[in-house]
């Protein structure tokens, strides 16, 4: 309790500033951006200048404006995916923790199988079957992520489920829904929130990766992964056009990771023997 009141470390402040900045961009981006996201305003791959701070892209559009406006789409999709996967994963995880042993085992074994396919490969399979569109993309990522959320939620819920106060409620005759929502959920919420940050980072990178491969968010919408793809050729000429949107992706993830790191370290204790180490 006490440590949470202490001043956050420098890294956490940096993280908070980054996250806050990009959140503002995502919400108010279209008002802040100097140019439109679609309009050709300069030459192809113009270098950075006072006019175009980060230069222009393959079609002569202002890169800075496209990054600012693209924040909404890029971050929004990852947030939507993660929220969806969290609802599914947490509900099923909680349900498994209060369900009979057989049901729990069925859930857990199925999830083991789903997890034995690497995420990107799984996403590629589904996208090849359905083609890439926004709803398919969001659903795909959410469904691929949900088993991972399930694993964490179930493990946390199982720890709580075996505690005596849950047993007391069970003996009292409370419904399973009560156990899930009133007894277990409030106790797994704090670790789940940091898990949300981590899962968001992961989904964010996967969506960016898919867009980069041309299988994610489709042009002409400005999205960071797609911008890297469109400008990838420029790098061979020593033009840094694809670096900027890639950097934006990295910054958001770093920011969130720094904040999550701080949150986790508040609850962590020093490990046993480190005094002598």
């Amino acid at each position: 309790m006490k440590s949470s009141l202490q001043r956050p470390p420098l890294t956490a402040i940096i993280g908070l500033v980054i996250v806050a900045t990009f959140l503002l961009l995502a919400i108010f981006g279209s008002y802040i951006a100097p140019y439109s996201e679609f309009e050709t305003v300069g030459e192809t791959w113009a270098p950075s200048s006072a006019e175009f701070l980060l230069g222009t892209d393959n079609l002569g559009r202002d890169i800075l404006s496209r990054i600012i406006i693209g924040a909404q789409m890029t971050i929004g999709i990852a947030v939507t995916c993660t929220m969806l996967s969290f609802v599914i994963g947490t509900v099923v995880g909680l349900a498994a923790s209060v369900a009979s042993n057989v049901v729990d085992q069925i859930f857990s074994r199925s999830v083991d199988i789903l997890l034995s396919i690497p995420v990107l490969i799984f996403a590629l399979i589904v996208l090849s079957a359905f083609g890439s569109s926004m709803p398919v993309l969001i659903l795909t990522i959410a469904l691929i992520d949900a088993p991972r959320v399930f694993r964490v939620a179930r493990a946390l819920a199982m720890n709580v489920r075996n505690l005596e106060f849950v047993e007391t409620a069970w003996l009292r005759g409370e419904s399973r829904w009560w156990l899930m929502t009133r007894e277990i959920l409030p106790n797994i919420l704090p670790p789940m929130i940091s898990e949300f940050g981590l899962r968001f980072c992961f989904n964010f990178l996967i969506v960016a990766g898919l867009s980069f491969l041309g299988l994610g968010i489709q042009p002409p919408s400005a999205d960071w992964g797609g911008m890297v793809r469109e400008n990838g050729q420029a790098i061979t000429f020593g033009i840094s056009a694809p670096i900027w949107p890639a950097l934006a992706i990295g910054l958001v993830t770093i920011g969130i990771n720094l904040v999550v790191d701080w949150v986790l370290s508040m609850n962590a204790r020093p490990s046993g023997a480190s005094a002598e180490l």
């Binding site: 980072c201 061979t236 000429f237 694809p242 890639a246 770093i254 990771n257």
Partner: peptide, 27 residues
């Protein structure tokens, strides 16, 4: 190690790749 590895897991693969190309191949 914590900060550097945190940075490395945060940035997308293609960012690392393009930086390497820009410096070691092009420059």
């Amino acid at each position: 190690a914590n900060i550097v590895s945190l940075g490395a897991i945060s940035v997308p693969e293609f960012f690392v790749a393009y930086l390497l190309i820009l410096f070691f191949a092009v420059k």
